[in-house]
Amino acid sequence: MLSKEKLERINELSKKSKTIGLSIEEAKQQSALRKEYLETFRSTMRDTIESVKVIDPSGNDVTPLKVQQAKKDKFLN
């Protein structure tokens, strides 16, 4: 998870870009922070999805095979 300071800086740069614009250095910083945010978000989402087990009303495990395989791969590594 990103630090509170980084999230605040992302929001600050976003507001500034909509009003007065960003300098070249600020635009580079914004891009780097956004990239880091997306990587963190995707990693967290992937971990969440891989930890889910889907059960139908009959009690059968109907977790998609792709998710089951990802769990196995993660466990083996």
Rank of each mutant, 00 (worst) to 15 (best):
K74R: 10
N77E: 12
T44K: 06
T19Y: 05
L22N: 02
K71N: 05
V52D: 09
A32F: 10
K6H: 02
E8G: 01
K4I: 15
N11H: 02
D73G: 00
F41G: 05
M1S: 05
I20L: 09
Q29E: 12
K6W: 01
Q68Y: 04
S14Y: 07
K71I: 09
E25K: 08
V52M: 15
M45H: 01
I24R: 14
K66P: 02
N77T: 08
T63P: 01
V54S: 11
N11T: 00
E5P: 07
T19M: 08
I10P: 01
T48N: 14
T44G: 03
K16I: 08
S17G: 01
D73C: 01
V52P: 06
I49C: 12
L7G: 00
D47L: 03
A32Q: 12
T44P: 00
D61K: 01
S31P: 04
A70E: 10
N77V: 06
N11R: 01
S43T: 05
A32K: 14
K4V: 15
R34F: 14
I24D: 12
F41E: 06
S23A: 06
D56Q: 11
I24T: 13
D47N: 05
V67F: 14
E36G: 04
T63H: 01
E25A: 11
K15D: 00
L13H: 14
K72P: 09
T44L: 03
T48P: 04
Q29A: 06
